[in-house]
Design a protein around this nucleic acid. Structure first.
Lengths: 230, 230
DNA sequence: TCCACTTTGTGCGTGCATTCACAAGGGCGT
DNA sequence: ACGCCCTTGTGAATGCACGCACAAAGTGGA
């Protein structure tokens, strides 16, 4: 048995915890800007919108950085979480697709603030090349491999139409990118060593619609079900 | 025993399943456009990027819509999933924030295609009001309550700066909206009966950075790499 | 020094999600 | 009609996530 070893064990930090660390980090930055020196798990959890026990368990995966009876030192915790997330170094990000979404992402302040630098904005449309967006000149998609190599890009964002996404993805992977944030409404096919995270606007809406229908419909089958049935 | 239970349609679909139904639906639409009449769980799972056993269990929550030895009828399954998600009716959606992101969302084709209609695009900036975006005139935020009432909006999208998000959220909730899709980088405070889904671009990047750092090996931080087993 | 108070870190029970593996069921060729 | 082969639907096992509740640990006051 033991056909194959599944994972190299993520240093013991659960995926669910990793997904919440950025939330805590944001809350801590808010406290830091207000000059708060320390914070209890109860307060921080409240700001971050989670259960305090969950927060303590999450933080315990990083180490024992709190002080019993006092709480957590805000600045120190910011540093520890930043380090764990890999934000103490700068990551070069390449965005593909200079359409509405791509431009919105390039202009999104949250990217540039801490840990991330937009190295390039690429597009396949020659008419778009050369336009300035968020202080960047749009470059042609053919320079993709150059950009990845020269700017040392390891994270890319795909904001192209669905039809172009897989092709762009393949080129990024071929160029050595191993982390992809995909906004195109489709499933990307990548090798095992590449991480893909998906942001899908219409899926989110459909999930909301499901719950909305349930709230409106309530207990019994809605009348239009019978009318439309087959 | 064949038709004695016409609709087992059991209420109580797991949340994880609901989140995947839109994925299946999209895959099925692709198959439908290619004229595929039936599909096996193995094929559909492959297209949707999930495990086939998981897909079958997901679909089994909707009812027994497959045929053993054959698979699932594509059109019929599209209808069943659409109905379950509440997409056989149209939902009016109001988008707040006509900045880069709001305009990108308004122009996003995926919204209008099936089940969703953008009823209004709102903004607080008087200079923005009246501009046409995606065939819609931007309206002032003060008309929010009017729009919600007249257009029967039950789902709203918040694409404002973080500082304005909670205020806009409160107004929507006060006007009767019970489902919110939040793009602002902050935690919204809402009553229990309101559903909020969060799309946070910088959080996704930070999660990628974490895994990217891990892949880069222990060459960066302290080397407690395999030592956290307890 | 000692005690009371505060807050962390975690053992543990519960419930959900995932995956395996297979019996039940249906089509199709002979 | 019959049996083979295919695929669904699901019991069962495993693992993960969450949250309660409490002991451990550190602070501050007397």
């Amino acid at each position: 048995m033991t056909s194959r070893t599944p994972r190299p064990r993520e240093r013991g930090i659960p995926e669910a915890t990793v997904a919440r660390l950025p939330l805590y980090l944001r809350a801590l930055h808010g406290l830091s800007e207000r000059g708060t020196p320390t914070v209890s798990s109860e307060e921080l959890a409240s700001v971050a919108g989670v259960n305090s026990a969950k927060l303590r368990k999450d933080l315990s995966h990083l180490g024992s950085y709190g002080t019993r009876g006092v709480g957590y030192d805000v600045e120190y915790l910011i540093y520890q979480i930043s380090r764990e997330l890999g934000l103490t170094q700068d990551w070069s990000v390449a965005i593909t697709g200079a359409g509405n979404l791509g431009r919105a992402l390039a202009n999104y302040g949250g990217f540039g603030t801490r840990g991330f630098r937009i190295a390039a904005l690429l597009d396949a449309d020659p008419a778009m090349v050369g336009h300035e967006v968020a202080g960047l000149q749009v470059r042609h998609i053919d320079t993709l491999e150059d950009v990845v190599a020269k700017e040392n890009v390891s994270i890319c964002v795909i904001a192209t139409p669905a039809a172009a996404a897989q092709g762009v993805c393949d080129r990024f992977v071929g160029a050595g990118v191993t982390s992809i944030l995909n906004f195109a409404p489709m499933v990307l096919n990548v090798p095992d060593h590449v991480d893909v995270r998906k942001v899908d606007l219409s899926i989110e809406l459909q999930i909301l619609a499901f719950h909305e229908q349930r709230k409106a419909g309530g207990d019994k089958g809605p009348e239009w079900v019978g009318a439309l049935d087959q």
